[in-house]
Simulated assay, not measured.
Amino acid sequence: MKVVALKLKDEDGHIDYLRQAIIDKELGMIGEFPKREKNRQISILSERIRNLIDEEEFEGLCLFRFYENITIKDLEVKNIEIGQRLQIGETVQEVTAIGKRCFKECKLIQSGETCNLFMNVIFTKIIKSGFVKIDDKVVSLPSTDRFISNK
């Protein structure tokens, strides 16, 4: 697994694509506005799901306004568990939630279709601060490890 995109929303509401980001244990992604909840500091989506969302013509309420902070190539959400830790670049992040709540007024949900965000978004809290860059490896940590070298 590796990082293929980094995004944040600035104070003006623009989504910026970054080559690298500073991710802080207390503040989440530096420059992100508004700040996310403490247990949902970072949002993560697989590259496969991002491509599906971008290529299809869905009418989901949040598909066009949702953005993930980190897009990861070869991420299989079905293999991720709440409480699992991931080393992403220099950071260590703990998975706190899997899936995004849907809005009842969403046309996609009302039509009975399944939203690609429903069980494919991961939210994390930061355990160890550091830099994350495009092409950084993503490593699932054994529960006994604090972190491993990125080299």
Rank of each mutant, 00 (worst) to 15 (best):
T114V: 14
E90S: 09
E81A: 10
K125A: 04
K78F: 01
I70Y: 05
C115M: 07
P142Y: 14
C106K: 04
G99L: 08
L63E: 13
R101E: 15
P142K: 15
K104M: 12
E94Y: 02
K78I: 09
F123R: 04
V77P: 02
V139C: 04
E105T: 15
I72W: 06
E105A: 13
K100T: 12
I127L: 05
G83I: 10
Q93S: 12
Y67Q: 05
V139E: 10
K107D: 12
F64L: 13
L108I: 09
F58Q: 00
C62N: 15
F58P: 05
K104L: 14
L141G: 09
T124F: 03
D136I: 05
I126L: 03
A97K: 14
V138C: 04
T91F: 03
N116F: 11
N69S: 00
E94N: 08
I70S: 00
I82P: 03
E113T: 03
E113Q: 14
D135F: 10
T124C: 11
R101I: 12
T91P: 03
K133G: 02
P142F: 14
I82S: 09
V77N: 04
D135A: 11
T124Q: 06
D74E: 15
F58R: 03
I82Y: 08
L141H: 09
K78M: 06
I134N: 01
V77Y: 05
R65A: 08
L75I: 08
T124I: 10
Q84C: 04
N120D: 15
I70T: 06
L86F: 11
F131Y: 14
N79G: 03
K78Y: 06
T91L: 08
E113D: 12
E81T: 10
